[in-house]
Each structure stands twice: as structure tokens, then as C-alpha cells.
Design a protein around this nucleic acid. Structure first.
Lengths: 348, 348
DNA sequence: CTGAAAGCGCTTACAG
DNA sequence: CTGAAAGCGCTTACAG
């Protein structure tokens, strides 16, 4: 038996990449110790930690995400599901979450559901295959199968925009604000200003829009001025053009309406443009308010009264909460209410 | 030596996941063959392919992305770099690319550069660690280090929005349209309508904006009406409000200007709003045109004349080209010019 | 607190 | 055309 046989020629692919064992060798420790030292897992001698970190630094070592994911069964991906990319609201959410996550070394895997529960389910299936470290998902309105997928995956999950229904079973994490209360508050503002026939005009009709409507409804009922004919619901996608159309319909078919609460700013902006075109005075003939305080709502003629929603802060806070959950810790509170702000401008 | 020693108890983590060897066993072939059959690598007997596929189907097998990435040194990620998320233009690009890529089983890893070459470089470094199968990147204006990172990574790459400079060295792939020509065409439209003192007003001042300006300039020079004082450049971010400010400045400081070419629709929309507020007639007193045909430009008062840019088609075509490159094939053409369309409305 | 070894679930030279 | 085996680059029981 040859004592000195040469090292076997490498049969396989070499990457050229600096690996963990390179670092371990340079630091004079085993790969296990190097791994533990680098991840800040306790139970490693302080001086070894320093040595390993120095070696890693010197060799410009960066761990391979795929190897780490395979070995630990947990990737550095975070899946983020939003309904649409064509609504600034959700883009703001995505951007803030992505920024926060990236600062901690996580990559965002985004999914666009188009408000379709089937598509959301499919997306969840695909994304969960990547064993994401965490999941951020918009709203609380999901198919039963989606709910099971999320629960079964054991992936930490935070819901965006909505708060949990009070009295829900499991302690689900969410950060958002009270949509119904925001809708009620905006309606009360109108009522305080003396408007009585306040129409509620909505498109898209997702869960959050319906919550705003229930807020509007309860405020109207409390004031004794609620009428079912004041509700204008259109399931089509929200847009400037649709807002213009709905506005024309309302003023034409119900000239007595003295204020309109559009469930989203783009509808309200479209209405304002149409009013201008038709020579209808806002707010003298009819007041208009929107929701979300989107880009341009401070520039319209007249400037739009609306509710400012803290979506960037929601995205950031939700990401932060998710980061805590990923570490296996428990967030200070399971529900974070970030509130909203009534922005009174000239249109109402 | 015991002849019948029991199989060693599994010392490690079991995932519960259906693996390739499960499929191979069920199909009565080796893991290697199963792997090749599933990936459609030729050199596998047709009947075996069928058997393996049937087994995979039956067991609901889905390959593990991390294991595949580790072994093949190529993930199913595609990195997509865009400058901003707050400009619909880029969101449209991202959405179209993502949709096309996802249909072929690729996950999009997005990066937002904020028009910052340093940030782009950093992002590239991070994303390249994930060994993406491909890279989609906006524009052709990158730092030297970024270019080296891209080249060194050997990751197939397609540039978005711009076309390559004619006479560039390497055959780089890109899909977009001729920004300078679009700028020139829009200017010629104004000149044909009889406007002579056509100002060019721009913000952001990225490479594509400057190309549009050079188009404007050459058209103005060709008509013999170019003047340096007609250029209004502001490095700040583009917005409705800024458009309004620039408009006021121009009409105040250079009342002889009879038309303004804003480099982006949001500026033009802001200008239109300000004109309305100031009672300045568009296009009678001053004509206004924009660029990109963004949301709302058909709703302004008056409706905005602009250039429609095919960003969704660019995103899709670029993704398609990248898919071809990933397969190791050569695209029919390295440069795809998707053109643009002059949209004449009421503002000019 | 540390290390040797097994394993995560694939792909891919290599040999036949 | 097919299979056995090595390897991708980590993490993690296990033993000390």
C-alpha cells in the first residue's frame, strides 16, 4: 500500500469560489467551528470567533446561499405577495419591505396575485418550494387551501394592511390600520362640514374597500342619513377614467347627492378632472374625497381631501416583525395598528 | 463481522419531501437517469422518459431549487435591475418581465438602483452571489466595475430600454427603442404644427433623457431654430410638482416660448395643472408635450400629446431573449428595436 | 467549547 | 443509452 499516494485528482467541477473550508483552514479551525463562529452561534470561544472573522474578511468570503439553504432547509428569501403592481399603494408597500429585508441580507421574492385567490394559491405553492425564511402577504382574505399551505409550511408570516378580526382563533401577526374606522372618520368629516347626502363610490371591491364602506355606512346610520341608493359599487379595476364615469353617473342620476366618498384616490382624481371638464364646481356643487393620498392628490384642482395611509411604514414595520419571527423570537405585539391621517384640502 | 447488520439509523434530518431518488426508485431507474429524463436531456430512452415522468407525476415530485442550484451552479433566479419603483415606466417593465419569466419557472429577484451607479454595483454583487440564470438590466450606463462583474460572472444579460451604441465592441443584447429618434420625431411634430420656440424641459437627467434631448436638439438645429437658452435642465427627481414649477419658470422668464417638450409625462401633467390654475391656455398660448404616455395622460385637460413607449413589450421581449440565451442558444438578433408611437392629443 | 462525519437533494464527469 | 459515485458548499446531530 503506497504510503505517499498523491491526492486524488479532482474529478469534478471546481468553482474557484472561496468556501467555508478555505476560511476554516486559514483560521486554523474546523469547518464546523468556522460555520458557528460566522453565524454568531454562541458556544464558540471569543478568540476563535475573532480569528475566523478575520480570515473570512481577508479572503472576502461570502457564503453560498444555495448550499446554506440546502443544508439548513431555510433560504434567505422572503416571499412578498401583493395584489397589484399597478397601484402605487402596493408598490410602496413592496419597496419599503424590500428595503428593510435587504438590509438584513434577505432577498425578496415577489408575487402578484391580481386579487385572484386561485392565483394567490398557485403563487404560494411555487414560492413555498423555495423554503422562504418568511412570508409577507397582503390582506386576510385567502382561500382555505392557501391558509393550509401557509400553516403547513411553518414559515413565519405577517399580514399587511388589515388588522386581524377581533376574536380570531390563532394569534396571527399583522400590521396595518383600521380600514372601517378610517372610512367612518372620513365620512364624519363630511357630515361635520354639513354634507348630508354622501354617496360612497367604489371599484375593485376587495376586502379593504368593503371595510371602508362599512365604516361609511355606520357613520351615515349614526347620523340618520343612510340610504342604500347612495352606494355605487363597480367591480371593475380602479382607474382615473372609471372615476370620471362614475362621477358622471352619480351627478346625473342623483343630482341631490352633495358629496362623494371615492374608495381610492385615482377614482377621485378622475372625478375631479371630469368636474372640471363639465364645469361642475367642487366642492360648491358637490364635494369629493378620496382615500390613500396617492401621488398627485395634492396637485389636483381643487386639491383633494383624503386619508393618508402609512403604507411605507406598514411595509417596514411588517418586515421588521417578520425578522423577529424568523429569529424565533416573539414580537412585542401580534397586531400593530399604524393609524391613518385625515388630510383636509380644498375638495371637501 | 455481522452479515445482517441493520441499516444504520438515520443520523440526520429527514425532510419528508419527495426526492429525486424516490422518483427513480418508483420508476425503476437510477437517480442519474431520472434526473436526465426529467430535464429533457436527450440520450435517454423514450420509454424510460415516460416511466420517470409518470412516477414524478404520481408522487407529485418537485425538484428542490437549492439542491439544483448547488449541484449545477445555476439557480432558477433571474435578477432584474431597474432604477426606480416610483416610476410606472419601470414597474411596467418589471411586471412584464416577471410574468414572462415566471411562466418558464424562473423567479425574479429585483433590485432598485435609484439611478445610483454605486448602488447598482453593490446590488449586482449581492445578486450575482445567487448565481442567477440570467440578468435583465435597465440602460447601458454602468460603472466599469459593474461591467466587469457582469462579464466575469458569465451570466447571460439583456439590457432594457436602450439600444446599443452603433459600433460598440462586444455583441451586447438589448431591447428597447431609439430614444434620440423619438425625441427628434416629437420635436418635428411640434415644428410641423408651426411652433418655433420649442423649449426642452427635463428632470432626473438620466442617460435616456439626455438622448431625447439630443434628438430634440438635432431637430431644432435642422430647422434652424435651436437656441441653448431653450434648454431647461433640473437634476431633481421627476414629479408633478416639479413640472408645475418648471412651467412657471419658463413662461415667466421666457414668455416667447411657444411650446414645451417635457422629458416625461409627469412633468407635463404638472405643467398642465399649473396652466389651468394660472389660466394659461394650452395649446393656444403655449403647447405642451410629454413622453411615455403614462397613466392619466389621456385624462388631462387638455389631453396630453406624447410618445407612447412600449415598455410592457420591452419587458416581455427582453425576458424572451434572455430565455433563449439561458438555453445556450443565440437569439435571432442581438438588438431589438420595438419602436415608439407619437400620440397626438389636444395639448399640441 | 470543538471536530469528524454525515447529510441536505440534486447534477455531472466517468466508465461501461 | 445507463448507472455508481463523487461532488456542489454548507449545517448539524453526535461524541468528546
Amino acid at each position: 500500500m503506497p504510503l505517499d499516494r498523491p491526492p486524488p485528482a479532482t474529478r469534478h467541477r471546481a468553482t474557484g469560489r472561496v468556501t467555508l473550508s478555505d476560511v476554516a483552514r486559514a483560521a486554523g479551525v474546523s469547518a464546523s467551528t468556522a460555520s458557528r463562529a460566522l453565524r454568531g452561534e454562541r458556544a464558540v470561544a471569543p478568540d476563535l470567533i475573532a480569528q475566523v472573522q478575520a480570515a473570512a474578511q481577508r479572503l472576502a468570503y461570502v457564503p453560498d446561499p444555495a448550499a446554506r439553504a440546502l443544508a439548513s432547509r431555510r433560504s434567505d428569501h422572503v416571499a412578498v405577495l401583493i395584489p397589484l403592481l399597478s397601484n402605487t399603494l402596493f408598490v410602496d408597500l413592496l419597496e419599503a419591505a424590500q428595503k428593510t429585508l435587504r438590509a438584513q441580507g434577505y432577498q425578496t421574492l415577489m408575487g402578484v396575485t391580481h386579487y385572484d385567490r386561485q392565483e394567490e394559491e398557485q403563487l404560494l405553492r411555487e414560492l413555498l418550494l423555495h423554503r422562504p425564511a418568511g412570508l409577507l402577504i397582503t390582506g386576510r382574505d385567502h382561500s382555505q387551501a392557501s391558509l393550509e399551505l401557509m400553516a403547513g409550511s411553518r414559515v413565519p408570516c405577517v399580514h399587511l394592511m388589515d388588522l386581524a378580526e377581533p376574536g380570531g382563533a390563532m394569534p396571527t401577526y399583522s400590521v396595518g390600520f383600521d380600514q372601517a374606522e378610517a372610512g367612518a372618520e372620513l365620512t364624519r368629516h363630511l357630515l361635520r362640514k354639513g354634507y348630508r347626502r354622501v354617496a360612497f363610490a367604489a371599484a375593485q371591491l376587495d376586502a379593504r374597500v368593503m371595510q371602508r364602506m362599512s365604516g361609511w355606512r355606520s357613520a351615515m346610520q349614526a347620523a340618520g342619513v343612510y340610504e342604500a341608493t347612495l352606494e355605487w359599487l363597480n367591480p371593475a379595476a380602479s382607474s382615473l377614467a372609471l372615476g370620471g364615469q362614475m362621477f358622471e353617473q352619480i351627478v346625473q342620476q342623483r343630482p341631490a347627492v352633495d358629496a362623494i366618498f371615492f374608495c381610492n384616490d385615482d377614482l377621485a382624481q378622475g372625478a375631479l378632472l371630469t368636474a372640471l371638464r363639465r364645469g361642475i364646481q367642487v366642492p360648491e356643487q358637490v364635494a369629493i374625497v378620496g382615500f390613500n393620498d396617492l401621488t398627485g392628490s395634492d396637485q389636483t384642482l381643487p386639491a383633494l381631501t383624503t386619508v393618508r395611509t402609512p403604507r411605507a411604514r406598514i411595509g417596514e414595520a411588517a418586515a421588521q416583525m417578520l425578522l423577529v419571527l424568523i429569529k424565533g423570537q416573539t414580537p412585542a405585539q401580534a397586531q400593530v395598528d399604524l393609524g391613518f391621517e385625515l388630510v383636509e384640502r380644498a375638495s371637501a
